[in-house]
Simulated scan of single mutants.
Amino acid sequence: MHLHLHPDVVTTETDDGAVLLNLKTGRYFQLNATGSGVLRQLLDGCAPDDIATALADRHKIPSERAENDVRAILDQLSAAGLVVTS
């Protein structure tokens, strides 16, 4: 699975994370720094499980929580039509 931003979506890094704008709908979405980092890694082709492992290690949280968090970000981005998989 490789993730891409939807062609109608642009992203801008901010001090607090990132903002994604759907140019077609005019809706925007904000990600905090952790969410932005997860998105960047997903777009770079990293596997969700590997991202979760790194988050669990970095933030000293249970791996199950990190896996759920990464999956939630991916699910929300997909449901909002911000990303597509190929």
Score class of each variant (00 low, 15 high):
63 S>V: 09
38 V>M: 05
22 N>I: 10
84 V>Y: 00
46 C>G: 00
38 V>W: 02
81 G>N: 07
58 R>N: 12
10 V>D: 02
27 R>L: 02
61 I>G: 00
37 G>Q: 05
2 H>R: 15
33 A>G: 07
48 P>H: 07
16 D>T: 05
59 H>G: 01
27 R>Q: 15
61 I>K: 13
68 N>L: 13
26 G>F: 04
51 I>L: 05
45 G>D: 06
61 I>T: 09
45 G>P: 02
20 L>G: 06
66 A>C: 12
55 L>P: 00
55 L>I: 09
35 G>I: 01
78 S>G: 10
29 F>H: 10
44 D>K: 00
12 T>C: 07
2 H>S: 09
43 L>Q: 05
21 L>G: 03
68 N>S: 14
17 G>Y: 00
54 A>V: 10
81 G>Q: 11
30 Q>R: 06
8 D>V: 05
37 G>C: 05
78 S>N: 12
72 A>T: 14
19 V>Y: 03
41 Q>A: 10
74 L>N: 04
73 I>R: 09
30 Q>G: 09
62 P>K: 15
36 S>R: 02
65 R>V: 13
21 L>D: 05
19 V>Q: 03
21 L>H: 04
38 V>T: 15
56 A>P: 12
21 L>V: 12
7 P>S: 11
45 G>A: 07
15 D>I: 10
33 A>V: 10
81 G>T: 04
38 V>C: 01
38 V>N: 01
42 L>M: 07
20 L>F: 05
24 K>Y: 08
31 L>M: 11
7 P>D: 08
39 L>P: 02
78 S>H: 06
59 H>C: 01
29 F>D: 01
73 I>T: 09
27 R>C: 01
73 I>K: 04
55 L>G: 03
75 D>W: 14
65 R>Y: 10
30 Q>P: 10
66 A>N: 06
13 E>S: 15
44 D>N: 09
65 R>F: 15
25 T>I: 00
49 D>H: 08
9 V>L: 14
63 S>N: 04
4 H>N: 04
11 T>F: 02
62 P>Q: 08
46 C>P: 00
9 V>F: 02
33 A>H: 13
56 A>W: 07
72 A>N: 15
85 T>G: 03
75 D>I: 04
47 A>V: 11
29 F>Q: 04
69 D>C: 00
22 N>M: 01
32 N>I: 03
62 P>C: 09
76 Q>E: 14
74 L>E: 09
30 Q>V: 11
74 L>T: 11
55 L>K: 04
63 S>Q: 15
12 T>Y: 13
7 P>F: 00
86 S>F: 07
51 I>S: 08
74 L>F: 08
1 M>W: 12
50 D>V: 06
